[in-house]
């Protein structure tokens, strides 16, 4: 597989504060890539760099051209970061995904409305088009945010903590939807999460990050008790239960 995004000795940070130094890895076309690590490890910083919102302090981030142009990137933020005071409808929220194409003045045309309809249908939210986003459940909101990212037909879809705070059923449904987007629609997926179990059982390749640490490989290569114990500074056990990877946290290192 060809790399879609390549980090070449990238240093990331804000102002003079370096968060990650000398990152070198790639996300391949068609990849289902997990980005995990403890809170504050710099996962969001890496995502901001891929999105182009944060310029690297050093090194370079290269993108492979898709259909002769830069890859289209869709982004699904953490659900809790959305401000729900104003009751925007599901249709209005999904249409915001087209704003980049529409600019400031052009009114949404049939093509835009069609793209929104298709995206909502894709995530199973067609019937909710006129509902305010704030009145939906967490899982339904997540679907709408995914639909908004899909309206631009992304080559790469980045999801930040898509299952955080969800019950088991909603979580499974969202993970199934993401798997569908990867397998059926051939979208390259980057899933950021601090929930190791979710990532371990869904992604193909994984990067585990902590300050000045980056381990990249298949889940089997990276999610070992040794690696996880070192990064999370506590005993971590990795096992299998009915074909699924289970990660158990033990005693904290240095704890008496």
């Amino acid at each position: 597989m060809k790399p879609l995004v390549t980090f070449e000795n990238v240093t990331l940070g804000y102002g003079r504060t370096v968060i990650q130094r000398d990152l070198s890895f790639s996300i391949e076309q068609g990849d289902y890539f997990g980005l995990v690590g403890p809170n504050g490890a710099g996962k969001t910083t890496i995502v901001r760099a891929i999105l182009g919102v944060l310029k690297p302090l050093g090194g370079a981030i290269r993108f492979q051209a898709v259909n002769g142009g830069a890859p289209v990137v869709g982004y699904v933020p953490q659900r809790d970061s959305v401000n729900l005071i104003l009751p925007y409808t599901v249709g209005e929220v999904a249409m915001m995904g087209r704003y980049r194409n529409l600019g400031l003045l052009r009114r949404p045309g049939p093509q835009d409305r069609e793209a929104v309809s298709r995206a909502l249908e894709h995530v199973g939210m067609t019937g909710a088009r006129e509902y305010p986003l704030k009145e939906l459940s967490g899982g339904q909101r997540q679907r709408v945010l995914i639909a908004r990212a899909l309206v631009v037909k992304p080559d790469l879809l980045i999801l930040d903590e898509p299952t955080n705070g969800m019950d088991l059923s909603s979580k499974s449904a969202i993970l199934d939807l993401i798997a569908h987007l990867h397998e059926e629609d051939r979208i390259t997926i980057v899933m950021v999460s601090h929930l190791l179990d979710d990532v371990a059982n869904t992604v193909r390749r994984i990067a585990i990050v902590d300050r000045d640490v980056l381990l990249v490989g298949t889940t089997g290569e990276v999610l070992t008790p040794e690696n996880l114990s070192k990064i999370y500074r506590r005993d971590v056990r990795v096992g299998m239960l009915e074909g699924s990877t289970v990660i158990l946290s033990g005693r904290r290192h240095g704890h008496r």
């Binding site: 104003l86 925007y88 915001m96």
Partner: peptide, 18 residues
């Protein structure tokens, strides 16, 4: 549009180039 998008979800609006 930018005001609505930024008010609802500044993170994604920024990711979209606003």
């Amino acid at each position: 549009r930018p005001f609505a998008f930024m008010g609802l979800d500044p993170e994604t609006a920024e990711a979209q180039g606003f």
